[in-house]
Design a protein around this nucleic acid. Structure first.
Lengths: 205, 205
DNA sequence: TCCCCTCCTGTACCAGCGGTACAGTATTGT
DNA sequence: ACAATACTGTACCGCTGGTACAGGAGGGGA
């Protein structure tokens, strides 16, 4: 059971890099098996078809993505008692982590896949939707904690505010890719951070 | 000369819809010629290869995109003397225009193309970059006008603030596609609008 | 009227792609 | 030792992007 999993995860690693660079449609199975050193039959032993590869890819990506957010905002929560200060620190840490990536963010598979709806089946679209909803729940939790202590200076829907974090991340990735300026993404996160600072600034200070 | 242009633009129309729904790689030439009622040779008479179709598509998309922004923010500028009020109205009009689309935003070709860098040649990447820079220039102009009259309550880089408009638009499109909630995009624009309101709120009021 | 240019059609062909089918085999855990 | 696991090898299919090239309909200018 172990050797099969090893080959499978090597396939997924190679596939993720290729898909992020060239898109799912632009990535051929022949190319993946050449780099992995496996035969075509071997590939189809692990994945029934290309769609199942897509499913495994996106699931793997989302798990990893969630782990990173858990770590960052978990650490920030440990370091700061105040929920707002903790969130602000988390954004800072996130922006620093992203600006340390030498070639910029490699791209978000969720974004890549949702832009090609009709290429994938409903199951993958549902996985994608669930991922976006998980982001929403995560950040809504943080904003709800903040709002126990701080009153927002503009009346905003908590879900929409939570979605804004994902929006800035996804939009920042697109913009930094289009502009070929890897730092744009972390800059945009810091601009968003300033907005949050303004939103929860105490009324008399 | 006229009949050729007509066929060409019909091809582009059909292609744009297909590419936005299925991605560039997922759109076949056979499919395009079937819907346009042309032969394969006819297609290659108009476009040397698929890459030239991509170039024509993105150029057409960007022209159209710029025209829409010109109209919206131009009208807003006519209706309001104050640059901040005019920008706020523009955002409101944009969000209303987007929420009126029954199936949500069809997707941004700039985002779609920049996510697949290696599928296209440098020329297309340069066109994409120029489009993002044009957005930056457009919105930076507006913020510079605003800052003549209003002092921002947080020190922000004008380019980064201008990029935030594009970020929110691109991120909002991704999020509303992933969530399958067409209204998310216009909601996110209104959240951003609230941030701008906070940023330029007079200090004593 | 003739010719040429634009705008195609038709036919034939190619390699690469995703995918299927299936027989055989080396390695591994029990 | 046995069977399940994890593949390899070979042959094949239809579709895709792309090439090549011959030919023709239709209109505009000489």
């Amino acid at each position: 059971m172990r050797k099969g999993d090893e080959t499978r995860s090597r396939l997924l690693e190679v596939a993720e890099a290729a898909v992020l660079a060239k898109g799912f449609g632009g990535t051929s199975i022949d190319e993946l098996i050449a780099e992995t050193g496996i035969t075509k039959s071997g590939f189809f032993y692990h994945f029934r078809d290309k769609n199942e590869l897509a499913k495994a890819l996106i699931q793997r990506y989302i798990e990893n993505d969630n782990r990173i957010y858990d770590e960052i905002f978990g650490r920030a929560r440990e370091l700061m008692d105040d929920p707002l200060q903790s969130f602000m620190l988390g954004l800072k840490m996130l922006s620093e982590l992203l600006s340390d990536l030498p070639n910029g963010h490699p791209g978000c598979l969720v974004a890549g896949f949702c832009y090609y709806e009709r290429l994938f089946d409903r199951e993958i679209q549902e996985i994608n939707r669930e991922a976006a909803l998980t982001w929403r729940r995560r950040f809504r939790g943080m904003f709800e904690e903040i709002m126990v202590v701080y009153e927002p200076r503009e009346p905003l829907d908590v879900d929409q505010l939570a979605d804004m974090v994902s929006t800035v991340l996804e939009g920042g990735i697109v913009l930094s890719k289009a502009l070929k300026e890897p730092n744009s993404l972390s800059d945009q996160i810091l601009v968003f951070r300033s907005f949050i600072k303004l939103l929860f600034r105490p009324r008399f200070s």
